[in-house]
Design a protein around this nucleic acid. Structure first.
Ligand code: MN
Ligand code: MN
Ligand code: ZN
Ligand code: ZN
Lengths: 143, 143
DNA sequence: ATGAGAATAGTAATCATTCCTAAATTGTAA
DNA sequence: TTACAATTTAGGAATGATTACTATTCTCAT
């Protein structure tokens, strides 16, 4: 009769140096690094870690909700800050930057009350030119 | 002195049957097909079209703003409706569905007035379970 | 009709991500 | 401690989506 927790939550997790290092790396930066950048960061501490391990742990942590996995245009990007916030992606320098403002009202609740979808999360990504690239382009034009 | 239009707008575009067929296919559906699905749709009409042509035209049309290119989890998805609207992606059946409501206020203008970013577009994607998959999962639990 | 520029089909190449497996590590319970 | 089963790892192979390349064909302003 009682359903019990879903399979995914039952499996026990081992805490490995690799996992710890990956989370550390991610939490130490305000950028939104892709898997290969994280790999290079962690390699400073654990020189023989493998990409598979990086991907596997990032995937796990994202599923558990400790971190966010974002669409970075090409590669996926990861975010150590799992609280809901807005993102901006620069089409020029490809940076992914946090926007200094809160998600508008509680858009998730609004959508939830109006529809039958079961919303687990949401993602808002603005795209365009970051302030620096905007300036750069302007200078190019007048040149 | 006058800057003129940016390079990207100067190049003249030829209207080919392939391009027409791709746009047709995209505008004939309310789903958000990936490139390979569009390829199969267009192949009914133009049996020898190649994937490269599909990708190239989708990319061009997205850059011109005629269509939208969305992150579909794995593959990219394309949307014949280029007016801003909200999307929902089902984690179970992987469908990408338009939400029947308008983008909240004019969030783009709000962000634009508060920051120095030059915003070209934005994308809001909710993820979770669509009504059908929600039901399916519920039935599985009681079984 | 012509010709310069643009687009195409077909194929090869790239690149991110996932899959595989034998060996090593982790947590636990004697 | 030691012993053991479950979990994780490194490394490399495999996959899958997308892009790059190129000889040929097409488009359209003249
Ligand atoms: Mn962030
Ligand atoms: Mn849509
Ligand atoms: Zn930039
Ligand atoms: Zn579904």
């Amino acid at each position: 009769m009682s359903a019990g927790k879903p399979e995914s939550q039952k499996k026990k997790k081992y805490l490995t140096p690799q996992r710890r290092a990956i989370l550390n790396a991610l939490e130490s930066v305000v950028t939104h690094p892709s898997a290969d950048v994280i790999y290079e960061m962690v390699r400073k501490e654990l020189p023989i870690i493998s990409m598979g391990t990086v991907y596997r742990n990032l995937e796990q942590m994202a599923t558990e909700g400790m971190i966010l996995r974002l669409d970075g245009g090409g590669q996926k990007r990861y975010d150590g800050n799992s609280t809901p916030h807005l993102h901006f992606r620069c089409l020029c320098c490809n940076a992914m930057i946090d926007l200094p403002m809160n998600p508008h009202d509680d858009i998730q609740k609004i959508v939830q009350t109006l529809t039958d979808f079961e919303i687990k999360s949401y993602e808002v990504i603005f795209t365009g030119l970051c302030p620096e690239c905007k300036l750069t382009k302007k200078k190019e034009q007048t040149a």
